[in-house]
């Protein structure tokens, strides 16, 4: 029997509820547990309650009920301590218009309690890792949105707290540097930092997170590893049909499962044996002028995400 080594600490949210107006729940009974070294994805559509959740963790909002603890410390009761135990990159741009890139990262590290020499060395390491050398002495006001986002990321992790919370860190970042950023996030896990990653980018998150929760309408609608969440779709393929605008929805064969309707795109899944019939059906829709295009592909975490969070889900 293999015994599991107990983690040195855990971060736990238990039955967290938050209402701004006493009527509607922005968070409605969320429970999570994250261990050091884990990169945990928090996925969900706009307004799902993700940012509300992380703002309660860092002490910017007070929960209506429920607990938030890190290593046994009560973060709700002691928001000053919460800010020391969490490094937070908010969605809004970091206010560094008058800072040179290396100044902003270094000073952020010092403010977070890092030693001067350690912070300086780590700043250079991050500038190198994120390929920010050419902007090292550039003022924040002259940076593009993506580079500024990367600098904000570096400012957050230059002296990381036990829990790092990144709210949409890849916004505006170009694909090449986005890859560098994901690599750096993975390395945080190696440093035994727990990472909460709030993102819309399901495909990228799928490759980088250890576990994730999908939040919708304030509730956790799914939680697990990317593989476990996709398990139900293992033998399925995705058949996506772009319907002609203005036409009525086509009738669906019984063996085709409608997952979601996003704009004019009808997302369905089909089991492997039914694929030829599915392709014939889609081709028929094109012939009749009901559809303009169709595509067959492997199911991904995005399909799970869309199915769980799309309001206009089509009843099969």
């Amino acid at each position: 029997m293999v015994s599991r080594i107990a983690p040195p600490w855990v971060f736990e949210i238990d039955d967290l509820r938050k209402s701004y107006d006493g009527e509607k729940w922005a968070n409605d009974g969320i429970t999570l547990r994250i261990e050091p070294g884990e990169v945990f994805g928090l996925l969900g559509p706009n307004g799902a309650g993700k940012t509300t959740l992380v703002k309660q963790v860092v002490g910017l909002l007070a929960p209506t009920s429920g607990t938030i603890e890190l290593g046994g410390y009560d973060l709700v009761a002691d928001p000053d301590h919460a800010r020391q135990l969490c490094s937070y990159l908010p969605q809004a741009p970091v206010p560094i218009e008058s800072f040179k890139v290396h100044e902003a990262i270094e000073l952020a590290g010092r403010i977070r309690g890092g030693e001067k020499s350690t912070v300086r060395a780590r700043t250079e390491e991050l500038i190198d890792d994120l390929e920010l050398e050419e902007w090292r002495d550039t003022l924040g006001a002259k940076l593009s949105g993506g580079v500024r986002r990367l600098v904000g990321f570096a400012m957050t992790i230059v002296h990381p707290a036990p829990l790092v919370i990144l709210d949409e860190p890849t916004n505006d970042v170009d694909p090449r540097r986005r890859r560098l950023l994901w690599e750096r996030i993975r390395r945080l896990g190696d440093e035994e930092v727990a990472v909460i990653l709030v993102t819309h980018n399901v495909l990228e998150a799928e490759k980088s997170v250890d576990r994730l929760a999908i939040i919708d309408d304030g509730r956790t609608v799914a939680e697990g590893t990317p593989s476990s969440l996709k398990a139900a779709d293992r033998d399925l393929l995705r058949l996506q049909v772009m319907l002609t605008p203005g036409v009525d929805d086509p009738a669906l064969p019984a063996w085709l499962r409608a997952e979601a309707r996003v704009g004019n795109t009808l997302v369905t899944t089909v089991s492997e044996p039914d694929v030829p019939a599915g392709l014939d059906w889609a081709q028929g829709l094109m012939t009749e002028g009901v559809a303009e295009e169709y595509a067959l592909g492997a199911t991904s975490l995005e399909d799970v995400y869309v199915r769980l969070t799309t309001v206009e889900a089509v009843a099969s």
Binding site: L60, D80, R83, C86, Y88, P90, A92, P93, P95, I111
Partner: peptide, 17 residues
């Protein structure tokens, strides 16, 4: 202006008194 731009929130989340 800082409150409108969101930078006040950044400052409020820093681990300082």
């Amino acid at each position: 202006q800082e409150r409108i731009s969101g930078s006040a929130e950044y400052m409020a989340a820093l681990p300082v008194p």
